[in-house]
């Protein structure tokens, strides 16, 4: 009988003899998979790009050239112009996206009839593939069968077909319009979500205290959504800085470099002309500029969170 009972009793485990990994080793084991992939897809390409930037790598081979690529860049006036153009492109586009997004979110957050439908209608520019959206804009900008040129002629603004993408200034601002068209819906939806998170009681309390619509927007809505607004500005800035498809599909950086931003320039040099070394140097400049920009931005984000946050 006692043997039968013994067979059903689980063997005792001596916990004191169990092997325990040192805490540090266990922690490294936990982060190892993520670390492996980060090294593979982020760190290694970055290091390789930096290495390439010190070479004259082409299809045929590569030689170490020191800082020659960087020296060429910093003495190239066209490259300086590209940097200025890129920042102008970024600030103008992001500014418009934020302003339009703020207006759109405010309207969609208001108690207007059919706002559910309007919220759905905001989505398409963001949802449809960029290439398809850009093809639509190519047609709109076309001088001979494009809607915009046709309307300009009918209203008497021009008396001949106007190719929006064939002139330096109009091409740049046309690309901006398309970029804003693609980027605004996401900003709108994020700001709308932030606005919907603001307690209704705050508005009612202000209403009882006599605050008008504009005062409530300025003193309640804007401060309450400020952390989201600033975060969106940073993300949008990085995406716009690196925006490639829209420019490439519309103008390929032309006419005469009028829409060539840093990322387009890098692509042209590295992939178009097979000058991998020079392209890598440009890529390193982009990473450095964005890193500095992000650090400055994060500094301000921290300040904004401190000022407008709850604590």
């Amino acid at each position: 009988m006692s043997e039968a009972i013994d067979r059903h009793v689980a063997p005792k485990v001596d916990r004191t003899k169990r092997r325990v990994l040192p805490e540090g080793v266990f922690a490294w084991m936990l982060v190892a998979p993520a670390l492996f992939f980060i090294i593979l897809i982020v760190a290694w390409p970055l290091v390789e790009t930096i290495r390439l930037s010190f070479t004259d790598a082409r299809l045929g081979g590569e030689n170490y050239v020191g800082f020659e690529n960087y020296n060429d860049l910093f003495t190239d006036r066209r490259f300086h112009a590209t940097i200025v153009r890129t920042f102008y492109w970024m600030f103008l586009s992001v500014g418009l996206k934020l302003v339009l997004g703020l207006i759109g979110a405010t309207l969609l957050n208001a108690a207007i009839p059919g706002k559910g439908l309007f919220r759905v209608l905001v989505m398409p520019p963001w949802v449809i593939p960029i290439a398809i959206g850009c093809m639509g804009w190519l047609w709109l900008y076309n001088g001979y069968f494009g809607l915009l040129s046709g309307m300009a002629q009918k209203t008497g603004l021009t008396d001949a077909p106007f190719e929006f993408l064939a002139h330096k200034t109009s091409a740049f601002y046309s690309a901006i319009v398309t970029d804003v068209w693609v980027g605004t819906p996401m900003v709108t939806l994020f700001l709308l979500a932030a606005m919907q998170g603001v307690s209704r009681d705050l508005y009612e309390a202000a209403w009882v205290d006599g605050a008008g619509r504009w005062y409530r927007f300025r003193r309640i809505t804007l401060p309450q959504i400020m952390p989201v607004l600033v975060s969106m500005a940073l993300l949008s800035a990085i995406w716009t800085f690196n925006s490639f498809e829209i420019i490439w599909i519309l103008t390929q950086g032309g006419p005469r470099g009028a829409t060539t931003t840093l990322i387009v320039d890098t692509y042209k040099v590295a992939i178009g002309n097979y000058k991998f070394g020079e392209g890598a140097a440009r890529a390193v400049v982009i990473v450095t500029l964005l890193a500095i920009f992000s650090l400055v931005y994060l500094f301000f984000l921290n300040k904004v969170n401190k000022r407008f946050g709850g604590k």
Binding site: D201, L202, E204, A205, V208, D209, I220, P223, G310
Partner: peptide, 20 residues
């Protein structure tokens, strides 16, 4: 309008402005 009624109201949620 509420302001012209001469009333003030204290809300259940306090309705304090968290950023102020």
């Amino acid at each position: 309008h509420p302001i012209d009624r001469g009333i003030s109201m204290v809300f259940q949620s306090y309705a304090l402005y968290p950023h102020l």
